[in-house]
Design a protein around this nucleic acid. Sequence first.
RNA 1: GGGUCCGUGACGCAGGACGGAUAGCGUGUCAGCCUUCUAAGCUGAAAGUCAUGGGUUCAAAUCCCAUCGGACCCGCCA
Length: 648
Amino acid sequence: MVSVNPFAEFRRECENVLAAALKTTIPEAKIETFPMSKPNNPNFGQLASSVSFELAKNLKKKPADLAAQLAKAADKTRFVMVEKVEPAGGYVNFYVNFAKFSAFTLESIGQLGQEFGFIKTDKPTKIIVEHTSVNPLHPIHIGQARNPMLGDALARILSRRGNEVSRHYYIDDVGRQSSVVAYGYAKLSKPVPDEKADLFVGKIYTVTACLVEIKKLNRQMELAKKVEPTEEVAKITKDLDEWMTIAEELEGKYPKLFKALLEKIGEDKNPEEEINRLNRCYEDGEPNARALIREVSELCLEGFRKTQRKVNISYDSWDWESDFVWNGQVSKVLGQLEASGFVHNENGVLEFDAEKVIAKMDLRKKLGLREEQEVPPLTLVRADGTTLYTTRDVAYTLWKFERAQKVVNVIGMEQSLAQLQLKVALYALGLSKQAENLVHFGYSLVTLPGYKMSSRRGHYITFDEVLDEAVKRAYEEVSKRSPMLTEDEKRNIANFVGIGAVRYALVDVDPGKPVVFTWDRVLNFETNSAPYVQYTHARACSILRKANKNPENVNYACLKENLEHELIIAVASFPDAFIECADYLKPNMIADYANALADKFNTFYNALPVIKAETVEITRARLALTDAIRTVLSNALNLIGVIAPDKM
RNA sequence: GGGUCCGUGACGCAGGACGGAUAGCGUGUCAGCCUUCUAAGCUGAAAGUCAUGGGUUCAAAUCCCAUCGGACCCGCCA
C-alpha cells in the first residue's frame, strides 16, 4: 500500500472511528469536523481530539466522562492503523499501530522518492510570481536579497504543488533614478566597466545622485534664504550636512570617479532639470534616451544575472516597465481609470480616489480594512505628464493577468499601501476576480546594525560580498574538518555550504519580522542552518553508502524505539507541512521542518546504531528509515533551493 | 496626528490562519560524550510574569479591546 500522505490516512481513520463512536454513544450530537491535534507528549498518542470539551458544553457532562465513553465505544474491528484509543484528561487519544504505520510510511516514501510530500492541488492554477525586481541602478544588496530567496522558494513550492508557475523580474527602468544613473553614465562618456557591471553602475549612480542632490539643496538654500530664513533653512542645512558627509565618504572610496563626475556635472547649471528632461524623453520613447537608459540598465542586469547564477535562481520572463509605457498600455489603463469615475484632476495632476472606490463597492471587509480606516488617494500622473510607479504597475498587473489567474508579488512591506491601491484600482476597473487573486507577499527590511541600508547613499553590503564571504568561510570549515578531501571536493562543498547557509538564513525568519544583518547570523554553520541540515543529509547518505545494500523484505515492526517512532511520525507528516506552507505561503516553515527532522535524526544517530544494530533484521529496518529521512530532507531542502549533498 | 506590522529565557528565533494537556529550538554559561555508521554532531543542568492591563472562553502565547515600546507607511519617490 502506498500513500502520498501517510499521516493524513491515519488522521482520517481516527476521525472515522471517532465519528462512529459518537454516533453510537451520543447520536443527537452533531459535529461536522473533529478537532484533532498532535499531542506534544508521545505518551498521549499520535493524535488527540478535544471533542469532549465541546460536547460537554451542550450536554452538561464532564469532558472526562465523555472521553471515556467515546474511547470505549471505538469499534476495534475497524482499526487498521489505529492501535488503541484511550481517554486521558478529557481528551480522546489515538495511538498509531507502528508495525503497520511504519511499513505504510516507509514504503510510500521509498516508492515516491523525490516526489514524496509534494501533494498536488485539486485546482492547478497559472501563477505568476514576481520577485527580486531590484532597480537596475546598483548591485543587489543583502537587504534586497531576502526577496529572491523568498520569491524563489515560493515559486518552487507553488510549482511542486502542481501549479504552472512563471517567475517574473520586473525591470523598473522608468523611474527618475534610472535617469540619474544614465545622466552620470553619459557624462562620463559611457565608460566600459572594469569590474562586475552592476557594481560599476552602482558607483556611478551613488556619486551622481549625491552630487545632484547637493546641487539641488544648494539652490534651494539660496531661494529659502531670500524668502523665509528660519525653519526651511535649518532643514536644508541639515540635509546638506548629511549629503556632504556622504560626498566625503564617496570621494574617499572612489576618488577618480568622484573627481570626474564632479567636473562633468559641474558643467551643467541645473542637472536636476537635465535629469527630468531625460526622464520625460524616455517615457516618450525618444530614441537617444531609449538607447542610453536601456544601455545602462542592461549593463546592470548583466551583473545581476551573474549573481543569480551563483545562487541558482532563474526567471522565466524579464519584463521592462518602459515597454508598458511605449506600447500604450499605460495610457490605455489611464483612460480606463478616468472613465471609471474615480479619477479627478487636482492642481494639474491626476489623482485616483481609492477611498471612494472602497466606499462605493463596499470593499473594506474584503480588503481586510477596519471600518474607520481610510485609504489615501494615489497620484497617477505628474504635472509634467509623466506617470508614477503604481500607475505603470496597474498596466503591468493587467498584462500579468492576461497570462495567469493568480499573481504573487514579492515586495517589501513598505510598499503595502501602494500594493493596496493597486488592488483597489483593479476593482475600480471592474476586475474584482483579478483583484482577489492579486497577492502581496510582503516582508520586512534587512537593516544594518545602527542604520538602514540605502542604495542612494551607497550604504550597503552587496549580496555578492555576502556570498563570497560565505563560500570563503565554508572553505575554511571544510579544510579544517575534512583535510583529506581533494581540492576540487573542498571547493565544491564550500560552494553549496556557503550559498546554502545564506539562502537558509534569509528564508528561515518569519518574513514579517525585520532582520538586523550580522555576519554570524547569515554565516551560521551550526544547528538551525543549511549546513546543519546538509550535514545530516550527508550523514544519512554515508550510512546507506557503507551499508551497501538495498533493504528487501523489511520487517518494519522491529522499529520499536521511541526515537524511531518519532522519526516515522515526522517523515509521515511532511506532506501536511508541505500543503500548509504552499497554501498559506509560508516558506520559512520548510526550513523549520527540515531543521526539526535533522535534530531528530541526529539524536537517533547518536543513540542507535544502524549498521551494527543487534540483529540484521533491525539493521534492515533502520536502513529503510534512514533512507526515508534522506529522501525527505532532500525534498525539503529542494523547496528552498538548498542542495542536499551526499558527502561533505 | 492616522494606519500597518512586530514584542516569547541574557541574545537570536519557532509556535499564532484553526484557542486545548508540563511554551519548543539554537547561541552563550556550566558539566559530560570521538578504539563504534561524518563531533558542521550528541547528552545533561541552570535560565520564561509569552511587553503590560483588561475582556471572551470549561480552556488564551494564540481571539478582542486598551496602553507602552520598536519598525515601516501616509510623496507630483520607487
